[in-house]
Nucleic acid binder design. Structure first.
Lengths: 142, 142
DNA sequence: CCAACTTGTAACTATATTAATAACTTGTTG
DNA sequence: CAACAAGTTATTAATATAGTTACAAGTTGG
């Protein structure tokens, strides 16, 4: 498959909604910033709304964050958008009759879960506020 | 794309070489345990040899670990095998004229690097020895 | 009320990355 | 030298993703 950049696009949407709160927040405008398809943006918006990170109204341009940006972590977005998908993946087709093939899936699942926890703990430490601040700092330095 | 399980297969090869040190270590035998293609196994073997984790001899079945299993970390295998090392990926096609689109790539690259570091630090803590021990423990408990 | 917009879905297509396959060269061994 | 092994390269198949198209349903201003 292609590498997923859904997480990046979801953060993009949330940051956009906050930075351009008084501007055009239609799916078309957001899609132009992401350089993605408006339909894809709407799909993602819908997911973020269901996850309780974003509020919207059908038929109206009325997008705003459901929480303050300091109360939305990168992990919140990750869990909302990536459908709890794992960063590492075991090979689920190994020979059960072999000592290694018959046990390595359980072993690696445990280890991968630890790696996943470490990554998620780091994501939990990053708030949307920090991301937006960094974006604005970078813009100011241009 | 499909989800990659190269890391799992590479660990599988190394564990197999250690556990079945006195058995059949041909690419065909290993492929049967992974339930993968012998050619794929040989390619992976080749990569592991080049990374200094495995020793082999062309034309001969003479596979053995290049280091003691306690001196090979999961991170070593990860860095050897995964050519695209990043777990998270920025969307590289965003509108540079937008405040968000023009800066978010740099912002997220920095954050994703932190997440990557956290994940790799955890991988560095896991040795092949622990993985093999866990496999053998699971086998003994069957 | 209706034309022109919007969000929200669903189905389909295109693309990218991977694993699998096949074929070949080179090296080893009995 | 026959049989088999590692090592390599090229091609194909599989699959998760983004992109596209289409349309239903809600909103709004004239």
């Amino acid at each position: 498959m292609k590498f997923s950049h859904k997480l990046s696009d979801a953060v993009h949407i949330l940051a956009f909604v906050y930075v351009y709160a008084d501007g055009d927040l239609s799916s078309n405008a957001i899609a132009a910033s992401i350089e993605a398809n408006p339909s894809m943006v709407r799909r993602m918006m819908s997911t973020l709304v269901k996850a309780g990170l974003l509020n919207s109204q059908p038929g109206k341009v009325a997008l705003h964050l459901a929480k303050a940006p300091e109360d939305i972590s990168l992990l919140d977005v990750y869990l909302a958008i990536e459908d709890n998908r794992n960063l590492l993946h075991v090979d689920e087709k190994t020979n059960p009759l072999c000592i290694v093939g018959g046990n390595i899936q359980g072993t690696l699942n445990g280890i991968y879960a630890q790696v996943q926890n470490a990554a998620e703990a780091k994501m939990a430490q990053v708030s949307l506020r920090e991301i937006i601040d960094d974006i604005l700092t970078r813009q100011a330095q241009k």
